[in-house]
Amino acid sequence: MTGPDASVALCARGLGFHYRRRGGRALQDCEFTVPGGRITALVGRNGAGKSTLLHLAGGLLRPGSGQLRVLGAVPGTSEARARVALLTQDKPLYPRFTVADTLLMGEKLNSSWDRTSAERIVREGDIPFHARIGELSPGRRTRVALALALGKRPELLLLDEPLADLDPVARGEIMAGLMAEAAERGINIVLSSHVLPELEEICDWVLVLQDGRIKLSEDVEALRQSHAVLVGAADQAGTLAGQHTVVQSRTSGRQLTSLIRQHGPLRGDWHVERPRLEDVLIGYLQPGEPGHCAPAERTEAVA
């Protein structure tokens, strides 16, 4: 607990994994460190390896190569199991158990259990305790699964697409509840999501995965500060090369719009905007090889 990595939520060194059946590498050479006390957004396109990474962190899979540490512990050990909660994307629960049974199961299976908050999460969703899990709507099931994950009082909560089947109101409520818990207890949260605008409000760290590799692991504010959206004449593109990292650029007619990671002062005549987190993330998620120093040559056809 008091090891050198104790204040680190998630740390990977040369992490690799491949599924035997599917072939191909799901993750390779992942190196990143998520400091403690953060709410981390795990972002990537479908098949980028988000779920694999969360399953590895939750101890459901074992790394093929390299290593991964959660709160300084090896995932899957009893120490890690007691401190890490994982909610997988399919949110499996026993369909024939009642809600009360499911919460009782959480109480029996965990060494520590916070019945009050687990029951509160269920009650806030207006879910009857005697209802069977199989009869609940997907949204309500998600809420029960979340209650089960939070009830074990984890120090690190891993959520794989937690909000996908919730309506917008429930989404807001659950997120607000999660944030309150996180602030109150200092829980580390890593959540994967495709809903980029929501992430900006809640996350202070981002992990971007692309094709099984880590593209970014950075503080959100630092990320926004270091990136800029430039709009200017297309013939100035050369002034960006070499000095700045062009993440994404688009020319339409004679106008160039470019997302760059700024290194030092800008030369040339540019209209500069601070990007939203969403813009930066989309820039990095675009296919191709952003991050190279040459200006991207993708040109949008003028309508």
Binding site: H55, G58, G59, L60, G76, S78, R81, A82, A85, L86, L87, T88, D90, K91, P92, L93, Y94, P95, M105, G106, L109, N110, S111, A145, L148, A149, K152
Partner: peptide, 14 residues
């Protein structure tokens, strides 16, 4: 079949 072993294993069970 249900994937529920993942839920059980994500609780305090090896």
């Amino acid at each position: 079949e249900l994937g529920t072993h993942r839920m059980v294993l994500a609780q305090g069970v090896s």
